[in-house]
Design a protein around this nucleic acid. Sequence first.
DNA 1: AACTTGACGGTCA
DNA 2: ATGACCGCCAAGT
Length: 126
Amino acid sequence: MKKTKQYRTRTAGKIPGDDFFSRVYDLVRLIPPGRVTSYGAIAAYLGSGRSARMVGWALNASHSQPGFIPAHRVVNRKGMLTGKHHFGNSTTMQQLLQNEGLIVEDDLVINFRERFWDPMKELDNF
DNA sequence: AACTTGACGGTCA
DNA sequence: ATGACCGCCAAGT
């Protein structure tokens, strides 16, 4: 494994396919409509010493990625729509989720537990 | 080059 | 159960 220095900055987001960001996008695209997951779950699934913050950072750049990335299906561990402000309008994320059958009340996904999509369980290998 | 901020999460008080 | 703190790592200032 060559190790390069721990985590080279590599100007994230500029090297598709080789960086953590692309893996996040890939995984997020697998989230079925009407289901949600958390930043931490994604980070845990990808492992690689990345923290949930990095997942958030990746999604932050997801708007400039090609193709549709259902970033609205990713919420924090409490089921709160912490990234709603990044969807243009503060209500867009909530609208998208409600449109998929989720119950959102005061930026919180009420049925978060039952709608939670855990990549660790759903995708199992890795 | 150093400090602060951030789409987070686990632990401790 | 709620709130503060600390660790993570990249990017902006």
